[in-house]
């Protein structure tokens, strides 16, 4: 019980610390400005204005969430170590896993508030432009939150053992791999089907693609903007199963981060 309480206390402190970060405000203001810019994009586009506004705003949510995870998230643990506040904190009766989970939830709170704010902006824009603001759009926002929850866990994992710059590169790398792994598999399958790959090289390429697809979190699953923008029905229980999928990856990443962090020396 005290462990859960301590996670909450550290999460709240992390949230308070993060909302003082100027980088966060820059990202939030930029995201809001770009969301309003989507109105102009909708006007200029040859496609349906409502579709352009909806898909652009959802992409902005995803991208700004990624930027917050990377630029705010990776510095969280490093700041504690370099600022030496970790010495006093870890001498309290808390495990290092509690520290990691608390930090994670604190940053997730920041992402949640950011997405909530952008969602309000999103609906205001849709209402202003008469672009049919349906509640189904919330499912897309929820899955963006799930995707960011995985990205934050990845960022936190890397920040327990590498420098902020390397952590940022690794996190963006995993994000790209996770986003593109399905397309990569489709390309490999397509090439194989048309018979352009023959012999050893093709097999190796196929195996590499399969490993990336199997090991890295399939972040493409959380992008359902095409479904909601065009009002196409999602497969049954799609959101439920993908929520579980996200939880599974988050659990694994946080477990590795906690294990690694518990082996660290704080000089």
């Amino acid at each position: 019980m005290q462990n859960i309480k301590n996670i909450g206390i550290i999460a709240l402190n992390t949230f308070r610390e993060s909302v003082r970060n100027k980088v966060l405000y820059n990202i939030v203001f930029l995201a809001i400005a770009l969301a309003f810019f989507s109105i102009l994009l909708g006007e200029w586009s040859v496609f349906d204005r409502a579709h352009v506004i909806k898909s652009t705003t959802l992409s902005i949510m995803s991208l700004s969430g990624l930027l917050i995870s990377v630029f705010v998230g990776i510095s969280l643990v490093q700041k504690e170590i370099q600022g030496r506040t970790v010495l006093t904190l870890l001498s309290k009766p808390i495990s290092r896993a509690v520290f990691i989970v608390g930090k994670y939830l604190g940053l997730l709170g920041v992402i949640a508030v950011h997405l909530a704010l952008l969602t309000v902006v999103y609906y205001v824009i849709l209402a202003l432009t008469g672009s049919n603001p349906t509640l189904s759009l919330l499912s897309a926002v929820y899955l963006i939150f799930c995707e960011m929850a995985i990205v934050v866990a990845v960022a936190l994992l890397f920040s327990t053992f590498s420098s902020p710059v390397l952590s940022a590169l690794f996190t963006i790398g995993i994000y790209m791999a996770g986003r593109l792994s399905n397309e990569l598999m489709e390309q490999v399958n397509f090439v194989r089907r048309v018979g352009e790959i023959e012999g050893g090289q093709g097999v190796v390429l196929e195996k590499v693609a399969s490993v990336i697809h199997a090991v890295f979190p399939g972040l493409y699953r959380f992008d359902i903007s095409a479904y909601v923008v065009h009002s196409v029905a999602l497969p049954t229980h799609y959101i439920f199963w993908n929520s579980l999928y996200a939880l599974g990856y988050i659990g694994v990443f946080l477990a590795i981060a906690s294990w690694w962090f518990s082996r660290r020396d704080f000089v």
Partner: peptide, 8 residues
């Protein structure tokens, strides 16, 4: 730091 568990 060894006494406080900060070092192993």
């Amino acid at each position: 730091k060894l006494l406080t568990g900060l070092l192993r």
